[in-house]
């Protein structure tokens, strides 16, 4: 049996918001260590890897591994009904046909209970071995979201160029070009505002802007985002959770 209680429903709301536009159906795999999701978008370009660790829950028990096949659009309709500050409890039997979603208001005696039908999903699982990256950038997630939104207005591709001194985000479209250059710096008072650039080898990669626009929907999960890049390889974008992470792997574009 699975019984997981969150101190606030806001974490789950943000997670669903962050992934629902990339994938529609996915298995939530529940183990004694927490909940994981791996899902690939229909075009096989973007992969989501989510870990909500046991410590993200106020109370958590999962005696046996349980898979919850969830339609995220339906789940989102239910999860939106809770207030962000409500307790959120997920309950499922060992071989469940549905999952119970319970919101409890902390001040009033109001308990809202919903049941979501589960699906039997046959999903591709991709083996991601430990990747070696040539460059790692950590920056404020809101800044990365703004750069993505701004440059996406010019072109359907977004280029990321990393040199020793800086990282350049660039787009080249029909009516013009744009770029944003960031240098690494340390903000002692607000560490989350810092920009860290670690580069072993220079990088020049191009990605589909629409996929990065979907990735930045994870912005509300974390103050900062880490971008890991390797030549001619998928990039990794990571938002850290209080205990766990939301990672996106994005395949690059290449010259034909």
């Amino acid at each position: 049996m699975l019984e997981g209680k969150f101190e606030e429903s806001s974490l789950m709301k943000k997670v669903v918001d962050a992934i629902k536009d990339s994938v529609k159906l996915c298995n939530f795999n529940c183990t004694e260590h927490g909940v994981t999701v791996q899902a690939v978008d229909d075009s096989r370009v973007l992969l989501i890897s989510l870990l909500i660790g046991e410590a993200s829950f106020e109370e958590y028990r999962c005696d046996r591994n349980i898979t919850l096949g969830i339609d995220l659009e339906s789940f989102n309709k239910i999860i939106k009904n809770g207030n962000s500050s409500d307790f959120l409890t997920l309950i499922a039997e060992d071989s469940p046909d549905n999952v119970l979603i319970i919101f409890e208001d902390k001040k009033k005696d109001r308990v809202s209970e919903y049941s979501l039908k589960l699906m039997d999903l046959d999903s591709d699982f991709l083996q991601i071995d430990d990747m070696e990256f040539d460059a790692t950038i950590t920056m404020p997630s809101s800044e990365f979201a703004k750069i993505t939104r701004d440059l996406k207005t010019l072109s359907e591709s977004l280029q990321i160029i990393v040199t020793k001194e800086n990282v350049k985000f660039s787009s080249d479209g029909d009516f013009g070009t744009g770029n944003v250059v960031l240098k690494g710096f340390v903000d002692m008072d607000k560490p989350d505002e810092s920009i860290k650039i670690d580069m072993a080898r220079p990088i020049n990669l191009t990605f589909g802007a629409k996929y990065i626009a979907d990735i930045v929907k994870g912005t509300s999960l974390s103050e900062s985002v880490t971008i890991k890049l390797a030549d001619k390889s998928p990039a990794l974008f990571e938002y850290k959770l209080p205990s766990g992470f939301l990672r996106f792997y994005l395949a690059p574009k290449f010259d034909e």
Binding site: S43, R44, L47, L126, T206, G208, S233, P234, A251, F254
Partner: peptide, 14 residues
């Protein structure tokens, strides 16, 4: 002209 690659050319199906 740029071509979008697939994750399947980098990661194996399990």
């Amino acid at each position: 002209k740029l071509k979008q690659s697939s994750l399947l050319s980098f990661f194996k199906k399990k």
